[in-house]
Design a protein around this nucleic acid. Structure first.
Length: 808
RNA sequence: GCCCGGGUGGCGGAACUGGCAGACGCGCAGGACUCAAAAUCCUGUGCCGGCAACGGCAUGCGGGUUCGAUUCCCGCCCCGGGCACCA
């Protein structure tokens, strides 16, 4: 036999990447696929640093799944693109002093190279970038559809303003009230007119549909909590001057314990209700709160502050007059901006009442606790006719009782807010609106889309709080498309999350310039078959995409309302026990590893270091194991190809242990790959390789299935061996091997013999052996007899093919 | 504070539905090959005691259920993530 050529991943991988491109291997037939499978992964933001290990981990896991599905006979569409607009790119451009319009194409080119090098099964015909006018034309179109449907509305809202950056910050960029880039600069609130999408109108549906989706439960839970549904009631507290203070509560059962009311400082009734003597104090307090930035009011110091208004309202249950306060622990944007305080059973109310010496009245009794805080178990006390009721039935009865007098209404409240899509920034798609003094905000006519982002050399945001686009005069001043009078363009750009809320709809239709997504293509390919991504997008991206899809369904543009029926979340790669970050200096750059070990080894190492859905710890040494494994597979494959019987196309029967192990391996790898349990699938392949080597087996019928099982994981190596074994076409046009349970079953099994639950012997018995036979042999065993010690056997537990336990 | 995960050898991690804890890999030790080293191959490797056969102890901690618990129940501790004056 001639010597086996050395395994040189660089050569092998370059060869197959070139062939895949030449032969259009990864470009599926999109118009009439027999079994379409849309394999989606979350597209990256093309940073200047290049693709990082986290991206690579996610993409490898998703790519393995796509390749596996293709081997099962599906027509797999696996597209990729770039989420290239947004504040990250813009800030980076500001730091390095290069215009993002120049920076982004460079980054995309670098990313493309890396994505090709790692061996993803991407259909490059359908790549996209959100910064491409041919793409964002339709992002703007989407805005127009929402605007026309009344789902895009303009509201005044507070934003975080950094006086040094001279710009609006996202909430994530504010750290405990300070700018993330200027740790000694306090963020200030500013009030601006902004565009909001009415996602709250869809809250109930977004929540209810979660039950119908096949999603990783962690992701669904995050989203459910974010939507935050609370059921309760609105209760009315009347004041002597006839004002009605409406509060929202989830615990109407505790109304007898409401000893005071609190209004948010911004509540419209605060100033009206405050008595003459208290006006000064109340106004001072409101000014103080207004000066606080949005973030520190929420997450900063939680010491309770507040001011008494001097006024009183009537508790609808007890009829007594209770004092009205204003305090910033009550938020205007949740519920009605007013609460009834039940200090006996709510921690915050209790702190406040203690600080300001307000009365505390217990109305719920719970075994073993003196003052049960927000407890739903327990019974009512000091609650008049409702004493003795459980909290649940008390709540129902009290709401009923009060609603007869018009003082209570059942009510559902959501935590989720409308989606603010305005960004007072440069690097994004301009919001396609024209402001006309006569007509108000008018949508740019669809024929005039896209509203191209003009090139502005100095795109730095300034102190005005107005987007840099306002400085481009020729662009800014336009005629109203409705009445033709002088008008101005909207100068804000839209949120990056709008770009990414519909990209999966665009992929199959990228070649159509005259429509966002082609009806036939969309019918064929959507919804997405499987979406794989990280939980960092569990809420915003996934929620917005679901919302946008629902709206498109309601407007008749698509026929489904959930874009991702099946979603799997992958874990996080950490290094030395900590998240990778530039500041920690533990970022792993994949390129060097791929250069040294090859893409196949790197892919497999990433998948082998831990469970895909949980992530794992990246260690440099670990990769040697998979590389050794690939070397062994290489040698096995090459030797098999050179074996005369194999090269003549002969199929021979395998030794029985090898045959059994083969069928066990096919079963295990199939099931584990299907369940994204790649680490154990790889372990199973390693065991099989050990078996082949121990048995000195190079038979085609033993080696060929291994090449197929390995193909999704190490696609280049598999192609090379497949070709060496005499196949003309791509291994990915072959079929995934099938297993036979009967052949996977061992002829003999080992049964454990226990005495009082401790293992005392092992017996090899025929599969399916009867209890009587096993017992007889076990009792005859010398080691077992020693522990039975002549004692009578009180009980025998027998688990077929597994164990027999004697209780003495 | 609330809601999710998780805690298993020196390390990354396995373990079906309550049935042999530690698969697979790394590392380490010994051996083969080599002038030598690397690579490769073989053997061993949870901890304690013992030359050994073997025995004891072990899945964060404390209880419980069970013939039998990493797995189920109760009460804690620690780590990671999310939400956070949400009434």
């Amino acid at each position: 036999m001639p010597p086996v050529p050395a395994y040189d991943p660089q050569t092998v991988e370059a060869r197959w990447q070139a062939r895949w491109a030449e032969r259009h291997t990864n470009e599926p037939e999109l118009d009439h696929p027999a079994r379409p499978f849309y394999n989606l992964m979350m597209f990256p933001y093309p940073s200047a640093e290049g693709l990082h290990v986290g991206n690579m981990f996610a993409f490898t896991g998703a790519d393995i799944y796509g390749r596996y599905k293709r081997l099962q006979g599906f027509t797999v569409f696996e597209p990729i693109g770039f989420d290239a607009f947004g504040i990250h790119s813009e800030n980076y451009a500001l730091t390095v002093g290069t215009h993002p319009a120049k920076l982004i194409p460079k980054n995309i080119a670098a990313f493309t190279k890396q994505l090709k090098r790692f061996g993803g099964m991407f259909d490059w015909r359908h790549q996209l970038s959100t910064t491409d006018p041919a793409y964002y034309k339709w992002t703007q179109w989407l805005f127009v559809q929402l605007f026309k449907a009344g789902l895009a509305v303009r509201k005044r809202a507070a934003v975080n303003w950094c006086p040094v950056c001279k710009t609006v910050l996202a909430n994530e960029q504010v750290i405990n009230g300070y700018c993330e880039r200027h740790p000694d600069v306090k963020v200030e609130p500013r009030f601006l007119e902004q565009w909001f999408f009415a996602i709250t109108k869809y809250a109930e549906r977004l929540l209810a549909n979660l039950e119908t989706l096949d999603w990783s439960s962690s992701t669904a839970t995050l989203q459910r909590n974010w939507i935050g549904k609370s059921e309760g009631a609105e209760l009315v507290f009347e004041t002597p001057d006839g004002s009605k203070i409406v509060v929202f509560t989830t615990r109407p059962d505790t109304v007898f314990g409401a000893t005071y009311l609190v209004l948010a400082p911004e509540h419209p009734l605060v100033e009206r209700l405050a008595t003459h003597e208290q006006q000064t104090a109340v106004k001072a307090y409101r000014r103080e709160i207004e000066g606080k930035d949005l973030v520190s009011r929420r997450v900063g110091d939680k010491t309770k502050t507040g001011v008494f208004l001097g006024a009183y309202a009537r508790n609808p249950a007890t009829g007594e007059a209770i004092p009205i306060w204003t305090a910033d622990y009550v938020l205007m944007e949740y519920g009605t901006g007013a609460i009834m305080a039940v200090p006996a059973h709510d921690k915050r109310d209790h702190e406040f009442a203690t600080a300001f010496r307000l009365p505390i009245r217990q109305v719920v009794r719970l075994e073993g606790e003196s003052l049960p805080l927000v407890s739903e178990e327990g019974t009512l006390v000091n609650s008049g006719p409702f004493d003795g009721s459980t909290c649940a039935e008390g709540a129902r009865k009290i709401v009923e009782w009060l609603s007869d007098r018009g003082l209570a209404t059942p009510r559902v409240q959501f935590r989720i807010h409308d989606w603010c899509i305005s960004r007072q920034r440069y690097w994004g798609p301009p919001i396609p609106i024209i402001h006309c003094d006569a007509c108000g905000p008018v949508a740019v006519p669809e024929k005039d889309l896209p509203v191209e982002l003009p090139f502005i050399e100095d795109f730095r945001p300034d102190d005005t709080g107005v987007s840099p686009l306002a400085r481009h005069r020729e662009w800014y001043f336009v005629k109203c498309p409705q009445c033709g009078k002088d008008a101005r363009r909207e100068t804000d750009v839209s949120d990056t999350f709008l770009d990414s809320s519909w990209y999966f709809l665009r992929y199959p239709s990228t070649e159509f310039g005259d429509r966002p997504f082609d009806a036939a293509r969309t019918r064929t390919w959507l919804p997405v078959t499987t979406y794989i991504g990280g939980n960092e997008h569990a809420v915003l991206h996934l929620l917005y995409s679901r919302f946008v899809t629902m709206v498109l369904k309601d407007l008749g543009h698509v026929t489904f309302e959930e874009p991702f029926p099946k979603l799997r979340a992958h874990g996080l790669i950490i290094k030395d026990g900590a998240k990778m970050s530039k500041s920690r200096g533990n970022v792993v750059v994949p390129d060097a590893y791929i250069q040294e070990w090859g893409a196949d080894a790197f892919r497999m190492y990433l998948m082998f270091l831990g469970p895909f859905q949980e992530g794992g710890d990246f260690r440099d040494e670990g990769i040697t194991g998979v590389r050794r494994f690939l070397e062994r597979v290489w040698t096995l494959g090459q030797e098999a190809a050179l074996t005369p019987g194999v090269s003549a196309g002969k199929r021979e029967d395998l030794p029985s242990e090898v045959d059994r192990k083969l069928h066990q391996t096919i079963r295990k790898v199939t099931q584990d790959t299907e369940g994204l349990q790649y680490n154990t699938a790889i372990a199973a392949m390693m065991e099989y390789v050990n078996e082949l080597r121990n048995a000195d087996c190079r038979a085609r019928s033993g080696v060929e299935p291994l090449v197929l099982l390995l193909a999704p994981y190490a696609p280049h190596l598999a192609e090379e061996l497949w070709a060496a074994l005499g196949h003309e076409t791509s291994v990915f046009d072959a079929r995934w091997p099938a297993w036979d349970d009967a052949r996977a079953a061992a002829g003999e099994v080992e049964v454990v013999v226990q005495v009082n639950g401790k293992v005392r012997a092992r017996l090899a018995v025929p599969r399916g052996a009867a209890e009587a036979d096993v017992r007889k042999r076990a009792e005859g065993d010398e080691g077992v007899r020693k522990f039975l010690d002549g004692n009578p056997i009180r009980k025998v537990i027998f688990v077929p093919d597994r164990l027999i336990n004697f209780v003495v």
